[in-house]
Simulated scan of single mutants.
Amino acid sequence: MTQPSSRQIDRLLDIMKRLRAPKGGCPWDVEQTPATIAPFAIEEAYEVMDAIARNDRDAIPDELGDLLFQVVFQAQMGSEAGHFDFETVAGIIADKLVRRHPHVFGDAAMDDDTWEREKDAERQRKAEYGALAGVALPLPALMRAAKLSRRAARVGFDWDDPTGILDKVHEEIDELKAELGGDPDRIEDELGDVLFTVASLARKLNIDPEAALRRSNTKFTRRFEAMETMLARKGQTIAEQDLPTMEALWQEAKTLPSMK
């Protein structure tokens, strides 16, 4: 394993600078803007998560490198505009980590709220007031719902226990049922309330709703592909089956050892 070194960071920064050079650089890289590149950071972050979920030790450093490239790309464009550079970015996060860990870099005692108190102070320094300030709009909706719920709970806007939220989930489902067959906008609104309340339930149970849904996505994919495999052995396809047959296949797939 290579030893930590600033040389590779310097090399990466030099490569990025050359890619962005108006003369001799890469035409695609040169024409990019912070806005056009921003979505790639989200994509790369999810690819890192996927590699970690698969425990692919070869892919993890590769995907982390792709994510780091997005930071370097944005920093280079910031430098070109005279706003900030990579040193600025690294310095800001280093200072922030020291501030948020006074129990490590100072003499304060650690408690569960240290991190959040410091984040609150940072938001106030940025003139971001209110319990929900700073929860980024572009976050995946389920993740943002959980963060909004968590922020509200910190100031006392919360149920006493998970049972109360579960009752609210059933209430929201009933409201959704009442709208079915009616105005599509109202149906979407009520469905959103169901999803938001489920995210709140996950938060109360100390479960990451994104992780829980990813797990269910994976489980659904395995079971559905098992159904397709069972049918393929008979020379059949899913599209040829009626619903009762598909339900029977689904139940059979759930009993397979590899599907548990």
Rank of each mutant, 00 (worst) to 15 (best):
G106C: 06
V135E: 06
L67Q: 07
V198Q: 02
M77S: 05
Q236H: 10
T114F: 00
L231Q: 02
E210N: 07
D85V: 04
T163L: 12
A232H: 08
Q32S: 09
V30Y: 07
F220G: 00
K234V: 00
I93V: 14
P244Y: 08
T2C: 04
A202E: 01
Y46M: 12
Q74C: 05
M1R: 08
K234F: 00
E31H: 08
R54W: 02
A212G: 10
A212R: 02
T2S: 11
G82D: 04
K219F: 07
D120W: 10
I238F: 13
W28E: 13
W28I: 13
F40H: 11
E87N: 09
L205N: 09
S79L: 10
W250G: 02
W115L: 15
K168D: 09
H83C: 07
L148T: 03
P138M: 09
P102F: 01
I60V: 15
P27I: 09
A90Q: 12
H101K: 15
V48G: 00
Q8A: 14
P138N: 08
A94Y: 06
E47K: 10
E247F: 08
M1W: 03
A51M: 05
E190K: 15
E225C: 08
V71Q: 05
L67P: 02
D208T: 02
K96N: 10
T237C: 03
M143A: 14
E171W: 06
F196G: 01
P22N: 06
D56W: 03
L132F: 11
D85K: 04
K23F: 06
R57Y: 09
T36I: 08
A59Q: 06
I238C: 06
G106E: 13
L12Y: 07
T163F: 09
M16F: 10
